[in-house]
Write a protein that binds this DNA or RNA. Structure first.
Length: 564
RNA sequence: CGGGGCGUAGCGCAGCCCGGUAGCGCACCGGACUGGGGGUCCGGUGGUCGCAGGUUCAAAUCCUGUCGCCCCGACCA
């Protein structure tokens, strides 16, 4: 591609709307433009990156027997009503056709797959199947953000497995896990595979593929010792217990001290020796006093799981009503509501609110001073012990780039996707569903590899393999040599970008660094003086080779064959 | 949905408090010089100041409403 006449608008400054590194760089390097909140145009360069990622995904999906197809973006409401997902999903775009019929814009395709399977799959002999597509999804996100990382419209590779039973599903699931690992490895990403919450998809199990990066939205706990990795939503860490002083139970005056920090400072104790008491109200169970250790924070997803329903934080007047004391002075002793405590509080004696303003209780122990149900409730912090091997856990910020779910029979039963087994008995098809976000792969690669000068693409997903820069358009020798190199690259099957603009060299070099193409060939003064051009790797700018112009292609192929 | 911020030329911003001819840098167009890390000089083009209403002799500026975008949180198949 020749730059002079291409739509490749680079920006000298960071756009004011962009915060995340990948957002800034993808805008600056001319990969994308934003049409509306969470809705993006992919310009030619961005399109190329996505296509290269999609090629890798296709190869690996085909390798495990995936069959590519295309399902509709727009669906009749009926199939969603049958599975019960028509109601209660705020992200669903709903619309009506001209006759007033309800339609939905697809955010995922379990319903369509189950509908299709209900018509086309009849016998155990038809199973297993792996169906996939690379197609646009629409989700009315509450808060699109971070550029291309969280959008309302995005392309997704979604695949679905159909199996006769759970054992077969396990095999399809394992095949996907292997394929996903290969895809992300080939894309040049650092990533982790972690157990995850099955969430509203329901189902038998799930894993997420997570790429560490600063702009991430999730956190995972990782164990370097045994490889344990889990989203903090479900990760179980074992916090070290503090040294408990030999307290007898007594009241202590804590005037004007409400927060854990204030109380522990006033009493000159370790915050780990305090209990944080939070009143929640559950729709069915009513008020629940939730306890975590003073230095811990409650993870609300864990609370939801422990309660079996979603509770909300109580209003200050509700706290007073149920416990007779203001927020900050409440505690479990004598509380006339159910108490749910984090596992970390099973042992030891703590300082807790006394349900009276200005007073706390010292030496409070679960079991002796109050009754509580225990559950894992606190968000895992770095340094807690691994639940499997006891080594310290690390916590990393990550972006989800793929997920795999064992769905079970929820969708097939709702839509009548049945088959006849060997005994002639009708059985529901066991489904799995699996997603990858190509745009997130691209953004995660930018986040992980960029340096101060711009993007550094992994060779496998770079928009071009070679970036040819001619220093001076006035020098006919340079131009002829650069044209020759550009033509030779293309003839050899290398994707090349040719900066043929009449710009000063500095502008071209800055843009080349910004765009992040793996290898740059510079045709400049050294050509006339020494008969050589320069070949430089984007990721190793200090290493530069000077090669005669007829050796360029060989050198390029060598460099590209051994990235980094 | 709760909290905060911002909408002025293609991009980045000033002007707004204290009403009175809409400005700067970059980009863009023409010219001259220059040519290895975002050049210099000369001359230009380009703006319903997000939108609507109000106050006023006069509104980018004050008031009311509204739309859009960003950030934090909630949410997230």
């Amino acid at each position: 591609m020749r730059l002079a006449k291409s739509l490749l608008p680079t920006l000298r400054e960071d756009p004011s709307d962009a915060e995340a590194l990948s957002h800034k760089l993808m805008l600056r390097a001319g990969l994308v433009r934003q049409l509306a909140a969470g809705i993006y145009v992919y310009l030619p360069l961005g399109h190329r990156v996505l296509e290269r990622i999609n090629v890798i995904i296709r190869e690996e999906m085909n390798a495990i027997g995936g069959q590519e197809m295309t399902m509709p973006v727009m669906h009749p409401a009926e199939i969603w009503q049958k599975t019960g997902r028509w109601e209660g999903i705020p992200e669903m775009f709903k619309l009506k056709d001209r006759y007033g019929r309800d339609m939905v814009l697809g955010m995922t395709h379990e319903e369509v797959v189950a509908w299709l399977a209900a018509r086309e799959i009849r016998s155990y002999r038809d199973l297993p199947q792996i169906w996939y597509q690379i197609q646009t999804k629409e989700r009315d996100e509450a808060r699109p953000r971070s550029g291309v990382l969280r959008t309302r419209e995005f392309v997704m590779k979604d695949s679905y497995t159909l199996d006769p039973d759970v054992a077969a599903l396990d095999r399809s699931y394992a095949a996907h896990e292997r394929a996903y690992r290969r895809i992300f490895e080939r894309c040049g990403l650092r990533f982790h595979v972690a157990q995850s919450d099955t969430g509203m998809m329901g189902g038998l199990g799930a894993h997420e593929f997570l790429a560490p990066c600063a702009a991430g939205e999730d956190e995972i706990a990782l164990c370097a010792g045994c490889g344990y990795a889990a989203n903090v939503e479900i990760a179980r860490g074992v916090p070290a217990a503090p040294a408990f002083p030999a307290w007898t139970r007594e009241e202590v005056a804590t005037p004007n001290a409400r927060t854990i920090a204030e109380v522990s400072r006033l009493l000159a104790i370790d915050p780990r020796l305090t209990i944080k008491s939070l009143l929640f109200v559950a729709p069915n169970a009513g008020p629940v006093l939730v306890l975590v250790r003073g230095d811990h924070s409650l993870h609300e997803r864990k609370l939801t799981r422990a309660l079996g329903e979603e509770a909300r934080a109580a209003h200050p007047d509700e706290v007073r009503q149920h416990l007779g004391a203001p927020v900050g002075s409440v505690g479990p002793v004598g509380a006339r509501v159910a108490v749910l405590a984090d596992e970390a509080l099973r042992e030891g004696a703590y300082v807790a609110g006394a349900n009276r303003d200005g007073v706390h209780l010292r030496g409070v122990s679960a079991g002796r001073d109050f009754e509580a149900r225990f559950a894992d409730l606190h968000a895992v912090a770095a340094g807690e012990a691994c639940p499997q091997c006891g080594k310290p856990l690390a916590v990393e910020t990550v972006i989800e780039i793929g997920n795999i779910f064992k769905l079970g029979t929820k969708y097939s039963e709702a839509l009548g996707a049945m088959y006849l087994d060997e005994g002639g008995k009708e059985q529901p098809i066991v489904m799995g569903s699996y997603g990858i976000g190509p745009a997130r792969i691209a953004a995660a690669a930018v986040e992980q590899l960029a340096d101060a000068d711009g993007i550094v693409w992994p060779a496998a997903i770079a928009p071009f393999q070679v970036h040819v820069v001619v220093v001076s358009l006035r020098d006919a020798g340079q131009v002829a040599a650069a044209e020759g190199i550009y033509d030779a690259c293309r003839a050899a099957g290398l994707d090349a970008l040719f900066d043929d603009r009449d710009e000063r060299p500095g502008v071209k070099f800055k843009d080349a660094d910004l765009l992040g193409v793996p290898v740059r060939v510079t045709v400049g003064n050294a050509l006339a003086k020494e008969g050589v051009v320069e070949i430089k790797e984007r990721r190793a700018p200090r290493r530069e080779q000077r090669v005669p112009k007829d050796r360029v292609l060989d050198t390029l192929q060598e460099v590209l064959a051994h990235p980094r």
